[in-house]
Computed example of a mutant assay.
Amino acid sequence: MNDLKRFLQGFWRERPLSGAVLYFVAVSALFFGVGRLLPQLIGTEIIFRLILSAMILIFLYVIYGWTPKALGFSAKGIGTSIRLSWSEWLKIVMYLALLLMLANPEALNQLLQSGTSAGYAPMMRGVAQNLSALTPQKLAVTILFGVSVGLFEETFFRVGLVAQLRVRFADSCRGAWCTVLIGAGLFAALHMMNAFGQSLAVTAMQVIQAFGTGVLWGAVYWRSGNAVIPVILHSLTDILIVLATAGTAASVAPGFSSSVALMAFDVGLAAIYLRPQKTRYSGIQTRSLWYNDQIGNGANLLK
């Protein structure tokens, strides 16, 4: 067992980029492979995602010695993360306001009669139907499901993947962009699996949006080093989406042009956050651990 541990540590430490890609493939295979063998129940999905999140944190501790606190599960950097995530908070507030409006029959009728949203009438009626059928039990399950998704995906990508890629590229403007773009690209690639259960057009829009979101959230995590706020934002987003669409054919996906515009906005905002004078040092607290001596003053000595 100790020999296996030393072998794995040597592989991941000496080949951080290959290790990060292998990590992505292994976790993805576990998620989709084992997930398909489990009963298709929402409770099982919640528990499974929580277990995978714990396994990722254990792996990062065993291989690198990174504790959850060092990876950002603490109050450190929380103010920076909240500030840099202003656009995501705005999206959530706007989406919540829309759901509250659709939950009000009088406001919904006025919106439908105005004629300004005629093309979205079926979607709005579907969302209103979901909200009218909401019970405390359904709300509780939806919250647990959203939290499990947010925790798993942020632990998988923003915490596990970005922190590992940073070992390879170190702290610099180029290193920050390489880390964030590769992480976002793999995050978007994972969403291609949605094509097995929906149209290619909707999947393409989700991939485009996921890439933009991955770049922005990766930049925020790289700057702040805080993992708590990304988990909260991701969880809130998924909770609101599930409340709006679960159980019906209603879709809240924007059009292709809107998806591209959202991606461009997120990438542009990330470019402001990752400008050269702001990327000399990352907020991720794993810098003080074993590989810092090998990297030195931002120089990449790992091959």
Rank of each mutant, 00 (worst) to 15 (best):
S18F: 09
S18L: 11
L22Y: 10
Y23V: 03
F24V: 11
A26C: 15
V27G: 05
R36L: 15
L37K: 07
I47F: 09
R49G: 04
L50R: 05
I51P: 01
A54V: 14
Y61P: 00
Y64R: 07
G65V: 06
W66H: 01
A70T: 13
A75C: 09
G79T: 08
I82C: 04
I82N: 03
R83H: 09
L84R: 00
W86E: 04
W89S: 01
K91I: 15
L98A: 10
L108R: 10
Q110P: 02
L111G: 01
L112W: 04
S114I: 03
T116D: 15
S117M: 14
A121I: 13
A121V: 14
R125D: 08
V127P: 03
N130S: 13
L131F: 14
L131R: 10
L134G: 12
L139E: 04
V141C: 04
L144K: 00
G150I: 00
F152G: 09
F157P: 00
R158K: 12
R158P: 09
Q164A: 10
R166T: 11
R168I: 12
G175C: 07
A176F: 02
L181G: 01
G183D: 03
L186F: 14
L190P: 03
H191G: 07
A195D: 06
A195E: 10
F196A: 15
G197K: 14
Q206F: 08
Q209W: 10
Q209F: 09
Q209H: 10
F211P: 01
V220M: 04
G225Q: 06
V228W: 02
V231L: 08
D238W: 01
D238Q: 10
D238T: 02
A244E: 00
T245P: 01
A246T: 06
G247P: 01
P254R: 01
P254G: 03
F256K: 09
S259E: 02
V260H: 11
V260G: 11
L262N: 15
A264I: 07
L269F: 12
A270L: 07
A270D: 05
Y273R: 06
R275L: 08
T279E: 05
G283D: 04
T286W: 06
Y291L: 10
N292R: 14
D293V: 12
I295W: 06
N300Y: 14
N300F: 12
K303H: 15
K303S: 15
